[in-house]
Amino acid sequence: MADVKKIATRESYGNALAELGDKYDKLVVLDADLAAATKTGIFKKKFPDRHFDCGIAESNMMSVAAGMAATGLIPFASTFAMFAAGRAFEQVRNSIGYPHLNVKIGATHAGISVGEDGATHQCNEDIALMRTIPGMTVINPADDTEARAAVEAAILHEGPVYMRFGRLAAPVINDPATYKFELGKGVQLRDGKDIAIFATGLMVGEAIEAAKTLADEGIDAAVINIHTIKPIDEDIIVKNAQKCGVVLTVEEHSIIGGLGSAVADVLTAKCPTKQFRIGVNDEFGHSGPAVDLLKEFGLCAENIVAKAKEAVKAK
């Protein structure tokens, strides 16, 4: 994929905010001393009066955002996923979720691809935490095109939204000229009959690569991008599971509580199907270059191919 354009979705987030600032005058941005890393600094440069630094105090920031939303603004509260979903979980639940306020949470540096900073900053639990909050929409975009579209979709959606962005540059897989983001809808990237691979975020690109290799080896894999983890697209899950008879979920998140769990929730109720999972197993990450870590933890096309073969055999 050497000639494919790569952009980190955190960069897409910052650019989208700056672009959409003109169109939506109620949009304001909060950050917690990480504007350079979350890329809200791009927005700050263009709209200095609409960007509010809260200092290193994420709990306060989430409740402040709630107060701003309760008085008519559309605040984007931005920090690393670890602090947005982890440290400030209870503020997100009680100040934002319970009153169902129109706060958008921009969580960057999600997953193990944070890299060198190590386990304290590699948040593999945020999807699990956020999807338990009633009324919370959870979006994990795969690339630049999808991330930008997701930001505008979040603005147009009335209610709290959690958006997950990555630090590592991700290949652009969606054509910005034709791509249309539909909140709560999965995207069928490839039809197949042997196995249904449901991927989210950074793993979507890997799943596409894996499907090509699998095709070369005679396995016809469907690839579905699940960008909205909640509410999840039940129809696309059931349809592909029925057709393929075995399912593989792939996510850069703990195998507990994320995409794999969300898909399993649908399958057990509507279409019991054997499911295999790729994700971060029940363990912490550690320091290292992101690309090496992804390989080490099996979050790569090679491992998807291996797991898919195992799954097809087990049908």
Binding site: S59, S63, A66, G67, E90, S95
Partner: peptide, 19 residues
Amino acid sequence: MSSGSLGQGVSVAAGMALS
């Protein structure tokens, strides 16, 4: 505003004031 988990209401009030 919904409240009850201590310490959060004052931040919400600050957000309303900034707004």
